[in-house]
Design a protein around this nucleic acid. Structure first.
Length: 118
DNA sequence: TGTATGACCAGTC
DNA sequence: CGACTGGCCATAC
């Protein structure tokens, strides 16, 4: 079963300026705590060299931390990509999930407006 | 076939 | 409040 393809499909659906978490993707796929597999699937992306084809930089952990930034070829690449899309960061260096969190299945959540950024 | 691993999560000490 | 452990599922060796 192409579990990776499932993850890729969900990641592709993430709108610009929005981010989602591993847990939500796993939950959308029907897994309780398959979040590790989500990370593993994205890890396979860099192996395939197609990681740049998918907005993998929009996938963060439940706290909004860019845990996978080291896999983007630089520790600041992922952050720059998100900022370029208008994603705002907290002073802690985490993504403001309260404003940019996007949940799979809800293409246009009404209570998650895109913030214009500072 | 079986063990080890992973860009995680939630609960517990 | 900070740190640790177990679990979860699929892939790789």
């Amino acid at each position: 079963m192409n579990y990776f393809a499932r993850v890729y499909e969900v990641v592709r659906r993430i709108p610009p300026g929005r981010v989602t978490t591993y847990g939500h993707i796993a939950a959308y796929l029907g897994l309780r705590s398959g979040a590790r597999m989500v990370g593993w699937a994205l890890n396979a992306l860099k192996n395939e060299g197609d990681w740049f084809s998918l907005p993998a930089h929009r996938v963060v952990n439940r706290r909004g931390e860019l845990t996978g930034r080291m896999h983007f070829g630089g520790y600041h690449v992922m952050e720059d990509l998100l900022r370029a899309e208008g994603v705002t960061f907290l002073e802690d260096g985490r993504v403001d999930l309260s404003r940019h969190l996007w949940i799979p299945g809800a293409d246009e959540p009404c209570d998650a407006p895109i913030a214009p950024g500072p």
